[in-house]
Design a protein around this nucleic acid. Structure first.
Lengths: 256, 256
DNA sequence: GAGCTACCTTGATCTGTGTCAATATTTCTA
DNA sequence: TAGAAATATTGACACAGATCAAGGTAGCTC
């Protein structure tokens, strides 16, 4: 820890405040640490900004050489694996300001594919540049490790959901988990847009589409949510939370 | 925490090159990189060797301060989360030469607990020492990141199993996955001992114990496996592999 | 704005696996 | 080594959710 700060401090010598890659500087990602302004500049030089990615386009494919991590600026992405049998398993949805592609570290190839759910802009962080920077900015590497570690935790939570919970519990969990992610990024925790289709949701949750659809309908009948196509409003966070059977996912629910 | 540091300090001050914890130097862990000999010496100084841990004892508990990563020398460990409702979800089994505790990086506390399945010896890698070392040996940090990344990949594979596969497929997958881990560590891929109980297996796979028991029986009737209590022999790797519906888990099966 | 396509909803039925219950086996303890 | 406790097996039955089938609806393109 102290090592970290020492190096950070030592780096903090020359700085300027030039605006960089807009919302996608690493400081606005899931990297809660406060980096120095000049660190940010260094990072911004590494960021490769590509054209917007259209709905359905791939960020990277399973088996591609692992050469970059992606930070999502706007839009949404799903990541998924394709089994030999051809079936697709969605392993996660990634929203604005989140990182995709970290699992490539294990074997120098991406173990999964990532596809845009809607028009999406990303910042590409080429691996070689990132490596060099990580050696210069210890805080950065730590944050990336935190990110990976957080992903492990999240996946393990998901394993619990998938293996132990009923369809109702899974969907309630899914909605609250999304809600929390929006809230943490300054958006409404109650009203948001589901970038993914019902099929994607059902795939992710290990359910049939029909089941997901039925539960959406029932939740709506019971006054838990309101839907209008892809727009959704969570009307009763408390009750949804009870449904999950998990420790509260949403701070707002605790206080009510 | 303070206890920990006291112990660490005493270790740091009285260090020499006395033969250390045998099989558990980091080079023999899941860390395939070839480190320099003097790096290994540095690592060995960090390794804290504890007394053997008895069956049922905890390595660390959910919520404990994250202050060490553990490398298993002999024995086996299960890691699991406990939901508010009290239910336990096993997130993984860890065999000799594997690391446990990396997911603590995310929030400075362990998000799960780890308990010995049998008498187990571990090497404790105190975090602060490891941090310093990682700054000195860049290859080490990379290996730890690979490890984390690999865990993500493994968990995501497990999500696929849990959400899409039948009970038969899950158990076949479980057995082959274990088999592969034994094989990679130089043990027989076909005959090994299941350190975990049927209840643990069923919990991990998201099934009822009865279901697991029935499938073991049926696999045996069909000549796929032979069991004698906790000892198990895989008689037909090919067929087991077919059952999983996944890309081959076991090299031996590919070549047959 | 007609027609096409992809997506979503709802109903009827079927089935894999959970649950409950009883017994058998192994492991521990004294 | 006996007796107790934990763990494993086997059977009967029920139900959550899959599957099959049939519309309905939204978002395209021309």
């Amino acid at each position: 820890m102290s090592t970290e700060n020492k190096i950070l401090d030592s780096i903090a010598s020359s700085k300027n405040n030039k605006p960089h890659c807009g919302t996608c500087s690493l400081s606005s990602l899931c990297l809660p640490i406060a980096l120095q302004a000049n660190d940010l500049d260094a990072l911004d030089q590494v960021i490769k900004r590509g054209r917007p990615i259209q709905k359905g386009e791939m960020l990277f494919k399973q088996g591609d050489d692992f050469n970059a991590v992606f930070a999502i600026r706007t839009g949404a992405v799903k990541s998924f694996t394709v089994a030999r049998s051809g079936e697709e398993q969605i392993t996660g949805f990634h929203l604005a300001s989140e990182l995709v592609g970290l699992s490539g570290y294990a074997e120098d190839v991406y173990p999964l594919s990532a596809k845009a759910l809607e028009t999406t802009t990303v910042c590409e962080l080429p691996l070689d540049k990132l490596e060099v920077l990580c050696d210069e900015i210890p805080g950065l590497r730590k944050q990336i490790m935190r990110n990976m570690s957080g992903e492990i935790r999240q996946d393990q939570q998901m394993m619990l959901q998938l293996s132990k919970k009923s369809a109702d519990e899974r969907l309630a969990y899914f909605l609250l988990e999304l809600s929390g992610r929006f809230e943490r990024r300054g958006f409404s925790a109650k009203a948001f847009r589901l970038a993914m289709s019902r099929v994607d949701i059902s795939n992710y949750l290990g359910l049939a589409v029909e089941t997901v659809s039925r539960i959406f309908t029932r939740f709506q009948k019971n006054g838990l949510i309101a839907t209008e196509g892809k727009e959704i409003t969570l009307l009763n966070l408390d009750e949804l939370n009870n449904l999950t059977g998990n420790p509260s996912l949403n701070a707002q629910c605790d206080s009510q």
